[in-house]
């Protein structure tokens, strides 16, 4: 299953809910304002790191870059994807749930 999160983790609990309500083996994709969660250092970095063992975490590069972060600013273990990679995640992970 693919869980898409688009909310800043500093404002809403969507990422927290996506992490805690997804099964091991799920993929989590951060888009729009959720990309701030993919920064290498922040108060939510530990939460994201905690998810990385059991789930894959991906960040939409175009959204990350648009907000002033370069690819090297990404948290270790988080994969950067472009829109083509977004499509692949949708294709390869079964049902999609958006935590809007």
């Amino acid at each position: 299953m693919l869980h898409i999160v688009n909310k800043s983790p500093f404002e809403k609990n969507s990422l927290e809910q996506a992490i805690s309500n997804s099964k091991d083996g799920s993929a989590i994709l951060l888009i729009e304002d959720a990309v701030y969660a993919a920064k290498s250092s922040s108060s939510v970095a530990e939460m994201v790191k905690g998810a990385l063992g059991q789930k894959t975490v991906h960040v939409l590069g175009p959204d990350f870059n648009a907000r002033g972060f370069a690819d090297e600013d990404v948290l270790e273990g988080v994969t950067i994807v472009d829109y083509s990679g977004f499509v692949d995640l949708v294709e390869n992970n079964g049902t999609v749930q958006s935590w809007v």
Binding site: M1, S20, N21, S22, K23, T95, Q97, S98, V100
Partner: peptide, 18 residues
């Protein structure tokens, strides 16, 4: 509870959220 909720979500074919 959380575990049951995870299972429920995981077995769906289409998830609509608004």
């Amino acid at each position: 509870e959380r575990a049951a909720l995870q299972d429920l979500m995981d077995e769906q074919d289409v998830v609509f959220s608004f």
